[in-house]
Simulated assay, not measured.
Amino acid sequence: MNKQQLLDQLLCRLQGELSTTQDAVNQAHDNAVHEQSKPENQYDTLALESAYLAHGQAVRAADLQRQVVILKHLKLPACSADSAVVVGALVQLRDALSGILQWLWLLPVAGGIDLRFDDMGITTITPEAPLGQKLLGNYIDDEIRLSLGSNKKCFHIVAVY
């Protein structure tokens, strides 16, 4: 698996989302200051709502920009079969109950994004996620137990790349 190609794919997705978000910021800002948005009475809140929307979209755009910068400067670790799970590692897990295999990519930002590589699905996860916290520092064949409320899961680390 080529982590650099995966990173390029992820950056492309984030930059596309950033572009869309910037367009939404501009549209919401234009709506907030447009002459037709002037309140006609005290209950007319269209301009105020548009301003709140523009602010929220601007915060999202700033967060996306931060994620892009972090990922552009990320040093991808070279992991081997005897490596511990670190930020930047690709980890294959087997669900102990169902036997289902899944690939996770532990990154400092941009969790929850599904990527594809050679017909394999890979999901990004951050160290702040409960499973991400549990993975850090573990090795192949280690068992990861996760409790989310009454839901209990058990995974085995199959590969670290």
Rank of each mutant, 00 (worst) to 15 (best):
residue 52 Y to L: 14
residue 153 K to T: 05
residue 63 D to R: 12
residue 33 V to Q: 07
residue 15 Q to L: 11
residue 131 L to M: 05
residue 60 R to K: 15
residue 86 V to T: 02
residue 146 L to V: 06
residue 50 S to L: 01
residue 72 K to M: 07
residue 23 D to R: 12
residue 7 L to M: 15
residue 24 A to D: 12
residue 53 L to V: 03
residue 1 M to H: 09
residue 111 G to H: 15
residue 108 P to C: 14
residue 117 F to C: 03
residue 33 V to W: 08
residue 82 D to N: 06
residue 30 D to V: 09
residue 56 G to W: 09
residue 158 V to M: 11
residue 53 L to G: 03
residue 149 G to N: 08
residue 145 R to N: 13
residue 159 A to F: 07
residue 158 V to I: 11
residue 87 V to N: 01
residue 129 A to W: 03
residue 46 L to N: 04
residue 132 G to R: 05
residue 49 E to I: 02
residue 29 H to L: 12
residue 69 V to N: 08
residue 78 A to G: 00
residue 106 L to W: 15
residue 65 Q to G: 05
residue 70 I to T: 08
residue 131 L to P: 00
residue 119 D to S: 09
residue 82 D to H: 04
residue 61 A to H: 08
residue 95 D to E: 14
residue 160 V to F: 08
residue 6 L to F: 15
residue 50 S to N: 08
residue 158 V to A: 06
residue 53 L to A: 12
residue 19 S to D: 08
residue 79 C to N: 01
residue 116 R to Q: 15
residue 40 E to D: 05
residue 66 R to E: 13
residue 95 D to M: 13
residue 98 S to Y: 12
residue 67 Q to D: 12
residue 44 D to K: 00
residue 134 K to H: 11
residue 146 L to Q: 04
residue 65 Q to K: 08
residue 31 N to W: 13
residue 39 P to D: 04
residue 22 Q to A: 06
residue 99 G to R: 14
residue 40 E to K: 10
residue 60 R to Y: 11
residue 38 K to F: 06
residue 140 I to E: 10
residue 142 D to Y: 08
residue 85 V to L: 03
residue 120 M to A: 10
residue 81 A to R: 02
residue 143 E to M: 12
residue 54 A to K: 00
residue 140 I to Y: 05
residue 106 L to H: 12
residue 18 L to C: 04
residue 58 A to S: 15
residue 148 L to P: 04
residue 89 A to E: 02
residue 128 E to C: 06
residue 39 P to R: 05
residue 57 Q to S: 08
residue 59 V to S: 13
residue 18 L to A: 09
residue 50 S to E: 06
residue 7 L to A: 11
residue 113 I to C: 10
residue 121 G to T: 04
residue 20 T to L: 15
residue 155 F to N: 06
residue 1 M to E: 06
residue 80 S to K: 03
residue 78 A to L: 04
residue 15 Q to F: 06
residue 18 L to E: 07
residue 130 P to M: 12
residue 4 Q to S: 14
residue 148 L to Q: 12
residue 19 S to P: 01
residue 130 P to G: 09
residue 10 L to Q: 10
residue 117 F to D: 06
residue 25 V to N: 05
residue 65 Q to V: 04
residue 69 V to S: 10
residue 79 C to T: 00
residue 152 K to H: 13
residue 111 G to M: 15
residue 157 I to C: 07
residue 75 K to H: 03
residue 17 E to Y: 06
residue 55 H to L: 09
residue 96 A to S: 15
residue 84 A to K: 02
residue 110 A to Y: 12
residue 49 E to H: 10
residue 147 S to Y: 06
residue 159 A to Q: 10
residue 47 A to R: 01
residue 124 T to V: 02
residue 93 L to Q: 05
residue 68 V to L: 10
residue 48 L to M: 03
residue 109 V to H: 14
residue 146 L to R: 04
residue 41 N to I: 00
residue 5 Q to M: 14
residue 51 A to S: 04
residue 134 K to Y: 09
residue 99 G to L: 12
residue 118 D to C: 05
residue 57 Q to N: 15
residue 88 G to H: 07
residue 68 V to K: 06
residue 91 V to P: 02
residue 52 Y to G: 03
residue 134 K to C: 10
residue 96 A to R: 14
residue 113 I to E: 12
residue 92 Q to C: 11
residue 119 D to C: 04
residue 59 V to G: 09
residue 67 Q to M: 13
residue 103 W to P: 04
residue 79 C to L: 01
residue 11 L to F: 08
residue 51 A to V: 01
residue 113 I to F: 15
residue 12 C to Q: 15
residue 88 G to I: 02
residue 47 A to F: 02
residue 59 V to H: 13
residue 86 V to H: 02
residue 76 L to I: 01
